[in-house]
Amino acid sequence: MIFPAPTFHRQTAAQRRRFRPAAPAPARWPVAILGVPFDSVTIDSAIARIADMIASRRPAYVVTPNVDFLVQARRDAELRRILLEAHLVLCDGQPLVWASRWLGNPLPERVAGADLVPRFIALAAQRGFRLFLLGATPEANSRAVARLQERHPGLVVAGHYSPPFRSLEEMDNAEIVRRIQAARPDVVLVSFGCPKQEKWIARNYGSLGVPVCIGVGATIDFLAGQVRRAPRWMQRSGLEWIYRLAQEPRRLFRRYAVDLRIFSEAIFAQWWRMHRWGKPGASAVSDAITWSGPRWQVARVTGHLDRPAIERAADAWREIGDRQHDCLLDLAEVDFIDSTGAALLVARQKQQHQAGRRLVLFRPSEPVRRSLGRMNLLSFLELAESTPVRDAA
């Protein structure tokens, strides 16, 4: 049932405390880079998040996008949606860290899959997490398992499998799923390369009975010792791509050249369009948070929806999207949104969706529509011009 636009009433401090979620909001806000919101985490906090996912036993997947991922996602709608819906999005590329600084919300560090996986495996050996290695060549897969078990005697490798090289549509998914389900792992490390591994995970993770799937690219080859990584100083300075290019110049030169051109142009365009250019700051969220019916939370967002304003209104944002109610955000009075604001809307959308709830952007202003449209986010978010509040009576 459709109701007219809700009225907003100021809550008392006691009412606001009553509806505040028990879990604290993250210490850092996400940032959207070319329309893909990245979680602002360190490698240690990323590992802690994965351990929490395992404890929850709910199916989830982790992606580690680099520049090439983002360039591919601009023309591949399926990959873009996969990155948007991922339960944890990690920054696998120093250029993305630099880009986040230009966009006004610096990511704390690069969290490359090749760094994350060995650190997580050490934790898995301590806690008894069961691993399954999927992909790479049969030789690399078997050698990686042998080296890991030699290095971590307590590690439980529940299974490993390197399926024949075929397209996604031709793969024997029934056999792969059967092997994984029989092994009952806690984490599946998938090494098919992008975008094949991300698409395979997105299509199958819900049926595997596994808490976490992670796309790891060439990491199994690294673990097997068949592909060497760049020296540490090159990794820290963002020059690892030069090392990879020297290893495989014929395969990588054209890809790197195209990626660099497209990414540079797109990042400059995003920075230019989402820069305040001296606009005075304003509140990001009013404290007019009310409830319409037993299921809906309603909030009016006003002024700038950017990082400084969001941080000033952090307590209010903790109340928005608390996983207990469907949420309606009135964005009619938002006059500016930046990369942090866009990422926050996507994060709240994912949070609500994963909890079986809805997030509706009500009457988004033209600046909001224009910015979200340029980042290819309008089709991911639910917009409404009239209030879609259900009659729960």
Results as ranks from 00 to 15, higher is better:
Pro6Phe: 14
Thr7Pro: 01
Gln15Gly: 03
Gln15Pro: 02
Arg16Thr: 01
Pro26Tyr: 10
Arg28Glu: 14
Trp29Gln: 14
Ala32Gly: 09
Leu34His: 09
Asp39Thr: 04
Asp44His: 14
Ala48Gly: 11
Ala48Arg: 07
Arg49Met: 12
Ala55Glu: 15
Arg57Ile: 08
Asp76Met: 06
Ala77Tyr: 07
Glu78Lys: 04
Leu79Ser: 06
Arg80Ser: 07
Ile82Asn: 02
Leu84Arg: 01
Ala86Asp: 09
His87Phe: 08
Val89Pro: 05
Asp92Thr: 08
Leu96Ile: 11
Ala99Asp: 04
Gly104Val: 13
Gly104Asp: 08
Val111Ile: 14
Val111Leu: 12
Ala112Asn: 01
Asp115Asn: 07
Leu116Lys: 08
Val117Asp: 05
Leu123Gly: 02
Leu123Cys: 04
Gln126Leu: 14
Arg130Leu: 12
Arg130Cys: 08
Arg130Gly: 07
Leu133Lys: 06
Gly135Arg: 11
Thr137Gly: 00
Ala140Ser: 12
Ala140Asp: 06
Ser142Glu: 10
Arg143Leu: 14
Ala144Glu: 09
Ala146Tyr: 03
Arg147Tyr: 03
Leu148Asn: 08
Gln149His: 07
Glu150His: 10
Arg151Asp: 08
His152Asn: 06
Val156Pro: 01
Ala158Asn: 05
Pro163Ile: 07
Arg166Met: 06
Ala174Met: 03
Ile176Asp: 00
Val190Asp: 03
Trp200Asn: 02
Arg203Lys: 11
Gly206Trp: 03
Ser207Tyr: 01
Leu208Tyr: 00
Gly209Thr: 05
Pro211Thr: 05
Arg229Cys: 08
Arg232Tyr: 02
Trp241Arg: 09
Ile242Arg: 07
Glu248Ala: 12
Arg255Met: 13
Tyr256Leu: 11
Asp259His: 08
Asp259Lys: 01
Ser264Pro: 00
Glu265Leu: 15
Ile267Gly: 05
Arg273Tyr: 10
Met274Trp: 06
Ser283Phe: 05
Ser286Trp: 07
Trp291Val: 12
Val298Ile: 15
Arg307Asp: 06
Pro308Val: 05
Ala309Ser: 15
Glu311Asn: 12
Ala314His: 11
Trp317Thr: 03
Ile320Glu: 12
Leu329Met: 14
Phe336Met: 10
Asp338Cys: 10
Ser339Gln: 13
Ser339Asp: 07
Gly341Glu: 12
Ala347Asn: 00
Gln349Arg: 14
Ala355Leu: 02
Ser365Met: 10
Ser371Val: 15
Arg390Trp: 15
Ala392Cys: 07
